[in-house]
Design a protein around this nucleic acid. Structure first.
Lengths: 153, 153
DNA sequence: TTAATATAGTACCATATCAGTCCTGTTTAA
DNA sequence: TTAAACAGGACTGATATGGTACTATATTAA
């Protein structure tokens, strides 16, 4: 299914929410409420984002988090990497060991190429864009769109 | 880490190996030897590839598998989809239920856009290309072609 | 100085998913 | 009829992930 982890998904939600209040310090508690996620989960995500330098943390009684960069200059790829580490498709196509075949080696370099392309796809989308309901729709592929019951007017 | 499953990785290996003998019928046993994978594993992968119509199977004493299409016209994406199903990044960004916020909804459509770009990245690489040790380091790989509504070097 | 609040770091567990194997049935050729 | 090879599905062990909890530390206000 080629998915990103839920935690990364949450991280995007949190960052987008934070970007709505750029410049301000928002507590994890508040972010949890707005994203409808559990506080411990949001907290975990924020810690990871903090280590990656995407948010700055403030301790103490009026503490919280603040976005470090502009939403337009932070990419989805950066957020995902903060949570999951480097973007790559395979550990190494030849991990079976005994790479003694041409074919296997050719795979490895090609996987790296594909990984780059995928990474670029995600580097090309900023948080600012994510916050907007989709600038322009394009030839929609057959990508699965699950439940469509959005509960708001 | 944004990874594909090992099974998909294996599937590519098997398909590339099969393409080296395009037109011929090769047994799972033989493919297992050439890829250095275990027979049951290779067998499992081949069954999935067969159901997806990427290979044709032949039972009986001289049975085996044969590629259905040309290696140049079969993409990495097709193979991965045969193993993992539709390529998508997230189940649905709003699976938390209670999508009552603008931000969440904007995420969903954007994820679809990203998924499309990622899918395209993998549709742009054929098995024939995978079999070659990497044609040449291309400065601007034409694979990605993500919707460049923003300037993207 | 102390109390309250909020994050940091780490560790833990339950669960879901995946990889890998095996078993039984079916088809085909000799 | 037998052996070889695939089809389908079930089962299991391992791994990773998601989610939570606990302790320590920092900050602010009274």
């Amino acid at each position: 299914m080629l998915r990103i982890s839920k935690l990364s998904d949450y991280a995007i939600m949190v960052m987008v929410e934070l970007s709505a209040q750029a410049g301000e310090i928002v507590s994890a508690h508040e972010l949890a409420e707005r994203t409808h996620l559990e506080l411990p989960t949001v907290s975990k995500v924020l810690k990871l984002l903090g280590r990656a330098g995407l948010v700055q943390s403030f301790r103490g009684i009026n503490g919280g988090y603040r976005m470090e960069k502009d939403a337009a200059s932070t990419s989805v790829a950066q957020v995902i990497e903060a949570i999951e580490g480097p973007i790559a498709m395979t550990e190494c196509s030849v991990e079976e060991g005994l790479c003694s075949q041409e074919a296997l080696c050719s795979l490895r370099s090609n996987w790296q190429r594909i990984s780059s392309a995928v990474a670029r796809a995600m580097e090309g989308v900023s948080l600012a864009e994510m916050a907007k309901p989709l600038p322009r729709i394009e030839p929609a592929l057959k990508i699965a769109t699950l439940n469509s019951q959005d509960a708001h007017p």
